[in-house]
Design a protein around this nucleic acid. Structure first.
Length: 869
RNA sequence: GCCGGCGUGGCGGAACUGGCAGACGCGCACGACUCAAAAUCGUGUUCCCUUCGGGAGUGUGGGUUCGAUCCCCUCCGCCGGCACCA
């Protein structure tokens, strides 16, 4: 427990400074066109992943990332940047709707209450947000533009020739709906009868709903989709230039899942039809001994022979009733049935049987494969189980004397999936895998039997939800056809609803509101709503110009905050975006991929000046409970920032979260650790303040206008340098260590030089802004040089010249182990260093007449004497 | 299974580009102040043997190097992601 008496009166001055900052909008960022806009300043846009304002209130995990960005924002302001540091609310979402279903409380009411609580909490930590830019994704003034962007998607297509989104007007084909970036499709979705809604894949855990653990079933429904797959290639390629953690880039690349291969056509014997397969190993085509279709493949019905129909239908029903979980069970044995049909292998015209099996997924490639059991583990397992032929067509390379032919089939105990040398493959025999691929693809293309292609794992984005609390679609239906509303009809606002209960059917709740539903005599409104991701896909753009009523973001504001050009006519490189984006890894793929996708569409259509939204990304690590376990209510190890503030103050909370360890690392909470930084802040306080008889605080009489001694002066410059560099490299923990060292030096100095505080307080102010402001102001009552506020000072400079010392301590090593130390002049020559190293007592003893083989000198660090062993 | 990250004192962590391992903080011990306690201040604190002094040491085992927490290989453990993607 902390002491009952506070070390410094944080509960007085912290709220005081918070309201003063708010009252004079201290951290308002002027936009181009504003009276106080200074075009001479460079811009810096530092953004947090805005929170979903849950009923739980702010979490220490939020505070970690938000403190890091706040330090950067405050630092950059002091370095002369025009800093955009905004905050808002990602407030559509299931919890508010669930609460509404349970209590009848309108989600808007719950949401507003939660937002108010979050805002109060954030303000009580002293974050320097520009609160004049605050908005919620649930504000009609915001989501009208979310709907507007949807219209852009709806009215655009991806032109594969230009590799860009273009307005529908440039499309010359005759089926516009087949190319729109927003389209309707009948799709199997995760339907949760208990919750009365579909769920996103990420909301389904182990076949059950993440909320409540209710069973989820697959059922086909009419859904809105976004054609993100057309951007697959660019979403991979354009990661290149981003300053993101490599791990996150890799996660995105894997998610998009690019693989190079070929499409190959297999004729169906006797039917005059073809089945196309995708393979990454066209070089193994001669080893294809059977084919497998996904049970859902549209050709299954046609190819199945009459005697196999019963068996095939039984299998299809079996598979259809399985959940995704059961179907992807790893330990599961392969299953499948023969269709009775045969295909012709295009390379050798062999008749091969066509099977169906659920290990072939309809959603990837063409939903059909050629099976090469000798060189694919899954095919091998399947062929072994069903007694299908296994023919080796690749052998391991490297062992020279090996014959091109391996006896069949005993030679293979398992599939050989690596690269090697082709065998039993006619024209490919003897070729290494990469060359064999090229050759066979060329051959297929020449014969018109196939072609090289690239395939992606990424699927189109299921964009509709059967919910009330989300953005309605600006779409109406008439005679079974959809039509976009005009921009002038936005926003489309949800109607009021009394009963939020699900309909009990897959019909969305909005379908219950007859008046709203009927757009006109003939036309009905779309009743689905957008998923929660929609609002977070472009909020960083709205922050540039949140009050704009004519445009989703003003051109000049967007250009300035994204590229630094003060107006949109200025030419410049097409790089930029948010300068720094900090948040958790949980959004490594979905949010960051979706936002990049929308951004690219808007960029292609000419609305934006950069192709990417977030230039630099940093992930904060998870904060664990004091027991080293993930914080959770059930474990009872959740730390509430409000309690920490009450006991130690906001500055201690901020400082501790930064002192715990590297930002990106996972680390456990420790109240003892909070006390440690609290004591440090207490020492800083007492550097300046002294407690009077009456228990008040007044400026310490020990403070005086005296010069720093040499040691202090050097330490001051070392500290400025270290803190400056550490902030720039996000090493906040070591920056704080250095300020502790600095403070400790002055604690016992009497009298104390005031100049030390002119250095320390500005350095401290990004970290512990309340204390810095308070002490700065108090000092100003007694000393000069404390004008204005700590937070608006220029960042202190340092003088490299003053960092130098005349004498350096060297470690003296013998064969790489430190045996002695010595002091040497900074400018000592190598010869002098060698001489004095050899003269140290330990070295004299050790050498004792042995030959010195070599002496290695590392300037300012060590001298290593190498002796024969 | 595949991909990625991480293993340093009793604990959180520090150590630049291969150059004195353990900064800073916590905890602990002792001391000062105090009638006493708290708070504060000071000293010490990687481990082992010890009087001096010596030895070992960054998950394990090896390698490269004058020198390895750092680079390479092996294995072990923890965390995260993906998971029949042809």
């Amino acid at each position: 427990m902390a002491s009952q008496r506070k070390q410094f009166p944080f509960s007085d001055f912290e709220p005081n400074w918070q309201s003063r900052w708010l009252a004079d909008a201290a951290f308002r960022a002027p936009n181009p066109g504003d009276a106080d806009f200074d075009p001479g300043k460079p811009k810096y846009y530092v953004l947090d992943m805005f929170p979903y304002p849950s009923g739980e209130g702010l979490h220490v995990g939020h505070v970690e990332g938000y403190t890091a960005t706040d330090i950067i924002a405050r630092f950059k302001r002091m370095r002369g940047f025009n800093v955009l540091h905004p905050m808002g609310w990602d407030a559509f979402g299931l919890p508010a709707e669930q609460f509404a279903i349970k209590t009848g409380q309108h989600p808007r009411v719950t949401t507003e209450r939660n937002i108010a609580r979050f805002r109060t909490q954030l303000q009580s930590i002293g974050f320097s947000y520009d609160w004049t830019r605050e908005f919620s994704t649930t504000d009609p003034d915001y989501f009208r533009w979310t709907q507007w962007i949807f219209l852009k998607l709806y009215n655009s297509w991806f032109n594969p020739r230009t590799r860009k989104a273009e307005p529908m007007e440039t499309y010359e084909g005759d089926d516009a709906d087949s190319v729109r970036l927003a389209y309707v499709a009948e799709m199997p979705v995760n339907w949760c009868p208990a919750l009365g809604t579909v769920l996103a894949n990420e909301e389904v855990v182990d076949g059950k709903s993440e909320v409540g653990g209710h069973p989820v079933e697959r059922r086909p429904m009419r859904q809105w989709m976004l054609r993100i797959t057309s951007y697959a290639e660019r979403l991979i390629d354009e990661l290149e230039g981003l300053d993101w953690p490599e791990g996150i880039k890799l996660l995105q690349r894997n998610w998009i899942g690019r693989s190079e291969g070929a499409l190959v056509k297999f004729g169906i014997a006797d039917l005059g039809k073809e089945i196309e397969v995708f393979t990454t190993r066209p070089d193994t085509l001669f080893g294809a001994t059977y084919m497998v279709l996904s049970p859902e493949h549209p050709l299954v019905r046609e190819v199945t022979t009459p005697d196999r129909i019963a068996a095939v239908e039984v299998y299809q029903r079996e598979v259809g009733s399985k959940s995704d979980l059961e179907r992807t069970e790893l330990t599961k044995e392969k299953t499948g049935v023969f269709t009775g049909a045969y295909a012709r292998n295009p390379v050798n015209d062999e008749r091969i049987p066509i099977w169906i099996a659920d290990y072939v997924l309809m959603g990837y490639g063409t939903g059909a494969i050629m099976a090469v059991p000798a060189h694919d583990e899954r095919d091998f397992e399947f062929a072994t189980k069903f007694g299908l032929e296994i023919r080796q067509v690749v052998r391991e390379a490297g062992r020279g004397g090996q014959p091109d032919f391996a006896p069949f089939p005993e030679a293979l105990e398992a599939a050989f999936c690596g690269e090697g040398i082709a065998m039993n493959s006619a024209l490919l025999d003897g070729l290494p895998t990469p060359e064999a691929k090229v050759k066979i693809v060329a051959w297929l293309e020449q014969k018109g039997l196939g072609r090289g292609t690239v395939n992606y794992k990424l699927r189109d984005w299921l964009f509709s939800r059967q919910r009330y609390w989300g953005e309605p679609f600006p779409i109406v239906w008439k005679e079974g056809r959809h039509r976009a509303l005009g921009e002038s009809e936005l926003p489309v606002v949800q109607p009021e609803l009394e009963d939020f209960k699900p309909t009990g059917t897959p019909e969305p709740p909005l379908s219950k509101v007859r008046d709203w539903l009927n757009y006109s005599e003939e036309a009905k409104r779309e009743t689905n709503t957008m998923p929660q991701w929609a609002g977070s896909c472009w909020y960083y753009l709205r922050f540039c110009d949140p009050k704009n009523r004519a445009r989703f973001v003003g051109k000049d504001a967007e250009t300035y905050w994204m590229t630094g050009k003060a107006n949109s006519d200025m030419q410049g490189p097409r790089a930029g975006g948010v300068d720094l984006y900090v948040g958790g890894t949980e959004h490594a793929v979905l949010h960051l991929l979706y936002a990049r996708f929308w951004h690219k569409v808007l960029f292609d259509l000419g609305y934006l000046s950069t192709p990417e939204p977030f230039q630099r990304l940093v992930n904060q690590g998870i904060i664990l409970g004091p027991d080293n376990q993930k914080m959770s209510k059930s474990r009872g190890n959740v730390v509430n920032p409000e309690n920490v503030i009450a006991e130690y103050g906001a500055d201690s909370l901020r400082l501790y979260e930064m002192f715990m360890g590297p930002l990106e690392q996972m680390k456990p909470w420790s109240m003892k650790g909070v006390e440690g930084v609290y004591r440090f802040l207490g020492r800083v306080w007492r550097l300046v303040m002294e407690e009077t008889q009456e228990g008040d605080w007044s400026v310490s009489p020990e403070l005086a206008e005296i010069e720093l001694n040499n040691r202090q002066l050097r330490l001051a410059h070392v500290t400025v340098k270290k803190v400056t560099e550490d902030i720039e490299s996000f090493d906040f923990n070591t920056a704080i260590s250095q300020m502790m060292i600095f403070t400790n030096e002055f604690v016992n100095s009497r009298p104390r030089p005031v100049a030390g505080l002119r250095t320390l307080l500005p350095l401290l102010s990004p970290f512990a802004p309340h204390m810095a402001e308070e002490l700065w102001e108090r000092l100003g009552e007694k000393f000069s040089g404390f004008e204005g506020r700590a937070s608006s000072q220029d960042w202190p400079p340092y003088d490299e010249g003053l960092l130098a010392v005349d004498e350096v301590e060297y470690g003296v090593q013998i064969n790489g182990k430190v045996r002695d130390r010595m002091l040497a002049r900074k400018d000592a020559s190598d010869a002098e260093l060698e001489k004095s190293a050899l003269a140290t007592p330990k070295v004299r003893d050790a050498v004792a007449g042995k030959p010195v083989l070599k002496i290695i000198i590392v300037r300012d660090k060590l001298v290593n004497i190498v002796l024969a062993k």
